[in-house]
C-alpha cells in the first residue's frame, strides 16, 4: 500500500495544525493553573533548572508558601518548616541543632535555604537527589516533624482550605504526596538571593557597594593563598560537592559515609553557599563554631588533619587587619532584600 505513509503524514499534519490552532502554548500559559511564577534572576546567575514535572507556577508557589509556614505538617501541629528556617536568619534558626516535635533534637545544624534550585544534592550528607524528595525528609524525621505521609495527606484532605488549593494548583482530585512535595519545592526554588554588596560590586558595576576594608577582604577571599574560592566560588559561592574541612581528627558524625557507606567519605559534608553567612550562625555541620571569627581561625589553623581532609585546607596566616577585612567581607555577603522580601514571608 504505497499511499498509506503519505496519507498518514497528511493526516498527521492536518491533526497537528488543528491542535496548534486550537491550543497554543500561549493559551496554556494563560490558564490560571499554568500561569508561570514571575521570577527574575539576579545578574550573573545561570538559568534556573526546573524539573519537567514541577513547572514554577504562581499557584504552586503560593500553596508551597502556605505549607511552609503551616505547623499542620508536624504530628502535634507545633512545628512548621519555618520553625527551623527563619527568613531573617537566612532561613536558618540560630541554634546549634534544632528542636523538633516532642522536644526531640536533630543531630546536625539546620542548613540555610538559598538558591536551592542550583544544587545537585540536598541534606548535609547529600543523601537526597532532588528538592521534591527533600520535602519527605523533615516531615518523616521523628526529631523534626515526625508525621508519616499517609497521616499528613489524610489530614490535609480534611482541612477546609487545602483540597481546593491543591485542585487549583495541580490537575489532581485531592491532596496527595505529589502535590505536597511539588508545591513545597516550588516555593523553595523561588528563595533566590543575588543582591548582596559583593553581587552589586561584581555583577552590577557598583564599585561603591564594598567599602575599602570589604574590598581588601574580597581580595583575600579570592586569593590563591587563602583558597576560599576552591570550594566557595562561582555565582553561588559554593561548588556542588562534598569536603571534609578538617574540623575534627575523629568524626562522631560519619557525614557522607552515612549514605554511601564509603569510608573514604567519612567526615565529608556538602559544601554550603556562603550567601548570608553573617546571619546563619552557628557554623559547620554540627553548629559547633559560634561565630565567623572562629570559622576564620579554624581555616587559618589548617584543620585537624583527618585522613579525608580536603587538600585545600592547608592553613594561612593573617595580620589583625587582614583578619578583620576578611570578617567584614563575609558580612558583605548579606542580602538584605532577601532577608526582607515579602514574597518569602508568612502572610
Amino acid at each position: 500500500m504505497p499511499a498509506a505513509p503519505f496519507i498518514r503524514q497528511a493526516m498527521l499534519a492536518l491533526g497537528i495544525s488543528l491542535i496548534l490552532s486550537s491550543c497554543r502554548q500561549d493559551d496554556l500559559l494563560r490558564m490560571p493553573m499554568y500561569e508561570p511564577y514571575p521570577l527574575e534572576l539576579p545578574p550573573g546567575f545561570p538559568d534556573m533548572p526546573v524539573p519537567d514535572d514541577n513547572p514554577l507556577t504562581t499557584r504552586r508557589v503560593a500553596l508551597g508558601k502556605k505549607l511552609f509556614y503551616d505547623p499542620l505538617l508536624s504530628i502535634d501541629s507545633t512545628v512548621s518548616c519555618a520553625t527551623c528556617h527563619l527568613q531573617n536568619l537566612g532561613f536558618t534558626d540560630g541554634n546549634r541543632v534544632s528542636e523538633g516535635v516532642h522536644g526531640g533534637l536533630g543531630f546536625r545544624n539546620a542548613p540555610a535555604l538559598v538558591n536551592l534550585a542550583w544544587n545537585e544534592d540536598y541534606m548535609r550528607d547529600g543523601g537526597v537527589p532532588t528538592l521534591e524528595l527533600q520535602v519527605l525528609a523533615p516531615v518523616a524525621a521523628e526529631v523534626e516533624m515526625g508525621i508519616n505521609f499517609k497521616e499528613l495527606v489524610d489530614r490535609l484532605n480534611l482541612d477546609p482550605t487545602y483540597p481546593q488549593l491543591f485542585r487549583e494548583a495541580f490537575d489532581r482530585d485531592e491532596v496527595d504526596a505529589f502535590g505536597i512535595t511539588r508545591a513545597l519545592a516550588a516555593f523553595e526554588r523561588i528563595l533566590v538571593s543575588g543582591n548582596n554588596p559583593y553581587d552589586q560590586y561584581r555583577f552590577q558595576g557598583k564599585t561603591e557597594a564594598l567599602n575599602a576594608s570589604e574590598q581588601r577582604g574580597m581580595l583575600l577571599f579570592e586569593s590563591n593563598e587563602l583558597g576560599c574560592t576552591h570550594c566557595h566560588g562561582g555565582f553561588d559561592l559554593r561548588k556542588n560537592g562534598f569536603e571534609n574541612n578538617g574540623l575534627y581528627a575523629q568524626y562522631v558524625d560519619s557525614g557522607r559515609t552515612r549514605v554511601t557507606l564509603n569510608p573514604d567519605e567519612r567526615g565529608k559534608f556538602k559544601v554550603p553557599s556562603l550567601r548570608n553567612v553573617a546571619v546563619t550562625a552557628p557554623y559547620m555541620h554540627d553548629g559547633s563554631l559560634t561565630d565567623l571569627w572562629q570559622v576564620i581561625d579554624h581555616y587559618a589553623s589548617g584543620g585537624k588533619g583527618h585522613p579525608n581532609q580536603s587538600e585545600f585546607i592547608t592553613g594561612f596566616t593573617l595580620t589583625t587587619t587582614e583578619r578583620t577585612d576578611l570578617y567584614n567581607f563575609l558580612h558583605a555577603l548579606t542580602d538584605q532584600d532577601f532577608l526582607q522580601n515579602p514574597a518569602f514571608s508568612e502572610e
Binding site: G127, V128, L133, L136, A137, V139, D176, A177, R258, V259
Partner: peptide, 19 residues
C-alpha cells in the same frame, strides 16, 4: 505513585533521609 501503589510514599517503606 498513587496511594495504593506498593511504591507510594504512603506505605512507610522509605528512608526519606537517603531517598
Amino acid at each position: 505513585f498513587g496511594s495504593s501503589h506498593p511504591l507510594s510514599s504512603l506505605t512507610n517503606m522509605y528512608w526519606s533521609w537517603s531517598s
